[in-house]
């Protein structure tokens, strides 16, 4: 028992684990909330695209010695607006617009990074992130950005909800639908950037989608889904950090693996939609 208490307390004796916990929790919190909209609106690929395309911005920043975070941010904002613009103003479908932005940003990023001497290591750093190397300044920054996104969502909750559910009707009600249709992808983009340090470009999608998908299996109404999503995201973060610390595994992937485990558990055992209960509840047809 003392072993267990030690195992629970030990990680937080290290400052780097405290910073990792804060940074990853901020990221998980904002991802879980934004992720609910992402899952409902089928925007998962958009989040992934913004993450990948911001490699270009990160590379520019890296190349010229600027801040990686602001580089990614400066790229993600126009990229997410461009995706919305292309899909709204042309007859191209959204996934096509996403594909173009996704690949072009990533290509520019790789070209720039290949000019850096220690190409692979640096590229790996950007692709997979490393929350263990996060500084207090970065923790603060992630917290601020996550806070701004959450404030925006809280303030515009009913409009975002209405527009996500029924854009035509919400436009008819005088809600600025165009603005919101640009805003939501923008929030997804900013959320993605805030989470890059925690899980990196490749895995940010998991943080965005998995908690929300788990929640959609657990709850029926939107507020419930939001709550479950946040709880799932935070549990995955804390448990992922423990797993990473005690089993000595890379941190970002550990968080994602725990979140995926929770999703599978919900898929099987969710009270209302779990496959196990559904199987059990199936009423046998009367035999002929």
């Amino acid at each position: 028992m003392i072993d267990l208490i030690d195992a629970v307390k030990e990680p937080w004796e290290f400052a780097f684990m405290q910073r990792a916990l804060l940074a990853a929790s901020f990221a998980a919190l904002v991802c879980s909330v934004v992720g609910v909209f992402v899952v409902l609106r089928g925007m998962a690929f958009m989040g992934d695209a913004v993450a990948h395309s911001s490699l270009a911005g990160m590379s520019v920043a890296y190349f010229f010695g600027g801040s990686i975070f602001w580089g990614a941010f400066a790229w993600a904002v126009p990229a997410s607006l461009a995706i919305t613009f292309i899909s709204r103003r042309t007859n191209l479908r959204l996934d096509t617009a996403i594909g173009i932005i996704f690949a072009s940003g990533f290509a520019v990023g790789i070209i720039l990074m290949s000019q850096v001497n220690n190409y692979t290591a640096d590229l790996f750093g950007l692709l997979f992130g490393n929350v263990l190397g996060v500084s207090w300044g970065e923790v603060f920054l992630i917290g601020i950005v996550a806070g701004c996104v959450l404030l925006t969502i809280t303030a515009l909750y009913k409009e975002l909800l209405f527009t996500a559910y029924d854009a035509t009707m919400s436009a008819a009600s005088g809600i600025p639908v165009s603005f919101l249709q640009y805003l939501l992808p923008l929030l997804v983009g900013i959320t993605t950037v805030a989470s890059l340090k925690a899980v990196g470009i490749v895995l940010v999608l998991a943080l965005l989608v998995t908690p929300a998908a788990t929640a959609a299996l657990m709850a029926r109404r939107l507020p419930g889904i939001m709550t479950y999503s946040v709880v799932t995201g935070l549990i995955a973060t804390v448990a992922g950090l423990y797993l990473s610390f005690h089993a000595d595994l890379p941190t970002g992937p550990s968080i994602v693996v725990v979140a995926t485990g929770m999703f599978l558990a919900a898929l099987l055992f969710s009270p209302s939609r779990g496959m196990v209960w559904q199987h059990w509840r199936t009423v046998p047809l009367p035999s002929e």
């Binding site: 549990i235 448990a239 089993a247 929770m262 919900a266």
Partner: peptide, 23 residues
């Protein structure tokens, strides 16, 4: 059931702790 899920999570964690050989 949520509590049960949480308990399972803890168990998984505890078993991971048991095999810990970090440093």
């Amino acid at each position: 059931i949520s509590a049960l899920l949480a308990a399972i999570m803890l168990l998984v964690l505890a078993s991971a702790c048991g095999s810990s050989q970090a440093t």
